[in-house]
Simulated scan of single mutants.
Amino acid sequence: MYFPLRLLPFIATALLMLVSSGTAADEIRVAVASNFAHTLKAVASNFETASGHQVKISIGSTGKHYAQIHHGAPFDAFFAADSKRPALLEAKGAALPGSRFTYALGKLVLWSPKAGYVDAQGKVLETGDFQHLAIANPRLAPYGRAAQEVLQKRGLWETLKGRAVRGENIAQTFQFVKSGNAGLGFVAWSQIKRPGQAVSGSWWEIPANLYAPIEQQAVLLNDSRAAQEFVRFVQNEESRQLIRSFGYDLP
């Protein structure tokens, strides 16, 4: 097709506008609970390669993300560390009806970077000579709530809560232990488990009957095509097996 030379600058500008608008539309803004951040980054990298879309990830506590979304934060999807907040958003009409699904089942461990320190039954909580025990804030973080349940069932909550240092989220809690500011702490198994790598330190993998299931759910916050594609990608079999390799159980 022939275009007069005088029209070429206008045609080029129009094409540039189309490309620019397409690129902006293909950025997906995702709020994610801190325990799932490393895993979601791995899944998102695969998605970006396969789709050409870009995934912008915001990491934080489930409680804080919920409050931000409730006040209008412009996220396209929310990957929470519980099922309560996504259900509330759906009930309030802030999420797409029917989009909520369970993407992972979290696992809680008691961990220390010191080899041989945490025993396989968690008796170190009663006998260990530690000054600080790291725990995520039970009011904000589902893993912190689970840790409190474990201590209560072991009859240790009243004894140890005075020695607890509380992280705003599970990522901060993990840093307390990793840095040595706390001798040991309740963290997500996914924080110390990496595909193809040996787990460092010592840990107690806490029996599931000591805390309520950590059912981690996601929900769509708008119906953009790219966001829907991303959510479907997270649920495919390849992504599910990647999630499992980072230390989660699957629904």
Rank of each mutant, 00 (worst) to 15 (best):
K114C: 00
T39L: 02
N169D: 15
G201M: 10
Q191M: 12
I170D: 15
W111T: 09
A50E: 15
A73M: 06
L40H: 03
V234M: 11
H132D: 12
F233I: 05
F75I: 05
P4Y: 12
W204P: 04
P138A: 08
K161G: 07
K153L: 10
F36Q: 09
A212M: 07
K161H: 15
S34T: 05
H38F: 11
R194N: 11
V231A: 15
A226F: 04
S45A: 14
S51W: 02
P213Y: 00
R166P: 03
S45E: 13
E205Y: 10
I59E: 14
K193W: 11
E48P: 01
S224V: 03
P9I: 11
Y248T: 06
M1G: 14
A95C: 01
T62F: 03
A208H: 08
I59Q: 05
A12R: 07
A31V: 07
F186R: 01
A218F: 03
G155T: 10
P97M: 10
Y117C: 03
S61Y: 07
Q121S: 13
E48N: 02
F3S: 13
H38C: 01
L16A: 15
A141W: 01
G72V: 04
N46M: 13
K64E: 13
A77R: 00
V32P: 01
W157Q: 03
N209L: 06
K64L: 14
Q148N: 00
L105Q: 13
K56H: 10
D26H: 12
G72P: 02
A94H: 12
E205V: 13
A208Y: 03
